[in-house]
């Protein structure tokens, strides 16, 4: 497996105990709000240190590596675009070793691929939800990470933008070939994107594997289906 997480983390009112693994594909981590999905991503990114356990990527133990040494791109739910920098500087932030011309070339390249070339001189505050997601994605992709983590990337956009972004995420997956771990509570989003899937409930992985197998399991389970039927309504 490309990524393996055997970790335990105790918070004040929550306990995460996961045994998660994924290959080099597009893995969707699915679960209701408060299940511990985002915490799992933070452990993978190195932002949160597990109390116990081990995180390994590509066969290497990265448990004690700080976030800056992991080579993992992280796009949080609110995008966290640096408000004091324009889009160009946001995207270029991770390219500190590149020289001016080379840096500019890389920024333009990635911006063109994600259709945000016209936004380069804008400030984050002036962007729409979809534009912010694209910029955050570009900023994470430009450093050529070994893995991209997306935390509910489509939760704050309208339905039309969501459909567009799903296609763009598929494009990113095929164009860049970087493994992606995508956290969501939306089963349709998961169904449209996932190659692999893991279902998280109450701080535990209850099912994981190939997307088709997990999805079948989810829909066969009446209680889970009820929870997700609400979300499905919006797609009608």
């Amino acid at each position: 497996m490309f990524l393996e997480v055997n970790a335990e983390k105790n918070l004040e009112n929550f306990r995460l105990e996961v045994n998660f693994s994924m290959g080099r594909g597009y893995c969707v981590i699915l679960g209701p709000t408060g299940a511990g999905k985002s915490l799992l991503l933070e452990i993978i990114a190195g932002i949160v240190k597990p109390d116990k356990g081990r995180v390994s990527m590509d066969g290497k133990d990265i448990t004690d590596l700080p976030p800056e040494k992991r080579g993992i791109g992280f796009v949080p739910q609110d995008c966290a675009l640096f408000p004091h920098m324009n889009v160009r500087k946001n995207i270029a932030y991770g390219l500190r070793h590149e020289k001016g011309h080379e840096k500019d070339k890389k920024v333009k390249e990635i911006a063109e691929k994600l259709g945000i070339l016209h936004l380069l001189d804008r400030k984050p505050a002036t962007l729409s939800g979809g534009e912010m997601q694209r910029v955050a994605l570009a900023r994470a992709l430009v450093i050529k990470p070994k893995l991209i983590l997306l935390d509910e990337p489509l939760s704050a956009v309208d339905l039309g933008t969501k459909k567009k972004l799903i296609n763009e995420l598929k494009y990113v997956r095929s164009e860049f070939g970087i493994p992606i771990a995508h956290v969501t509570h939306d089963i349709l989003e998961a169904a449209m994107l996932a190659e692999e899937m893991a279902v998280v409930m109450n701080g535990r992985i209850v099912k994981s594997g190939r997307a088709e197998d997990v999805l079948c399991y989810e829909f066969c389970d009446g209680s889970l289906f009820k929870k997700f039927s609400e979300i499905m309504e919006q797609w009608k």
Partner: peptide, 27 residues
């Protein structure tokens, strides 16, 4: 200053010093 900015900056390869001087301090 939202801690998320600092966390994301670190995943982009920035050391704690660089995050402090380019993100936390200016904000």
């Amino acid at each position: 200053v939202d801690v998320r900015f600092e966390q994301v900056a670190r995943t982009l390869g920035a050391s704690q010093w660089r995050v402090f001087f380019t993100i936390s301090l200016p904000l």
